[in-house]
Structure formats: C-alpha cells, structure tokens
C-alpha cells in the first residue's frame, strides 16, 4: 500500500498551500457480498490526519461511502519551516505515517 502526497516544497510566510493525498486502499465497505455470497468484512481507512509541527491542523473522518483509493484535499496556512506529518488509520486500528518538510521563506 502506498500513498501519493501532493504538497509544495516551499511557501512564502502566510501563504495558503493546497495539500492532496491519495492512499492505496480498497475501502471495502462491509456491505458487499463476495462470490461465495458471504459479506466481505469492512476494511476502510477511518481517519486521515495532518499535523504541522506536531499540532493537528486537519482531520478527515472517512466512511464506507468514500471511494476505493481514497482522495482527500485540503488547505494549510504556511508560517514556519518544519515537518508536515500525515497519519491515516484503518478500522482495525492500524496506523500509517508519512512526513514531508515544508520550507517557509
């Protein structure tokens, strides 16, 4: 499972940047039946969080109505150079993490 993160490397102080995430994941709803007629267990990403210098600046709670390979786009006001961290968690509690450095100058 991988992730695509679209975020600029640098921004001017106070600039509002756009961040986009695409996560490789089936987002199995838990409502579907498999070929054997049995329900396929739910397997979804439930939350996608963005931390900026350790502080939560954005979170998306996702439900089964989000597409396979979920996509989330949002904004952030850049003011300090530092780490932007992305954390996503599935309904089994498994957490994945990726980070990027944003240079503000």
């Amino acid at each position: 499972m991988s992730v695509l993160i679209n975020i600029p490397d640098s921004a001017a102080p106070g600039e509002i940047i756009e961040i986009k995430l695409l996560i490789q994941h089936p987002m199995e709803t838990g409502f579907r039946t498999g070929p054997d007629g049995a329900l396929v267990p739910r397997d979804i990403i439930e939350s996608v969080t963005c931390l900026y210098l350790g502080e939560e600046v954005f979170r998306a709670d996702l439900y089964p109505a989000i597409t396979a390979n979920p996509f989330v786009g949002f904004h952030l006001r850049a003011d300090t150079t530092g780490e932007i961290e992305f954390i996503w968690t599935d309904n089994a509690g498994v957490t994945s993490r990726e980070a990027r450095t944003l240079t503000v100058a």
Partner: peptide, 12 residues
C-alpha cells in the same frame, strides 16, 4: 489528474 489511483499499480 496525476493523483489518479491507476498510478499505484505503475509504482508497484
């Protein structure tokens, strides 16, 4: 859109 899910299979 470069943020298109097919990209994952190319990367894999």
């Amino acid at each position: 859109d470069p943020m298109n899910p097919a990209t994952f299979w190319v990367l894999d």
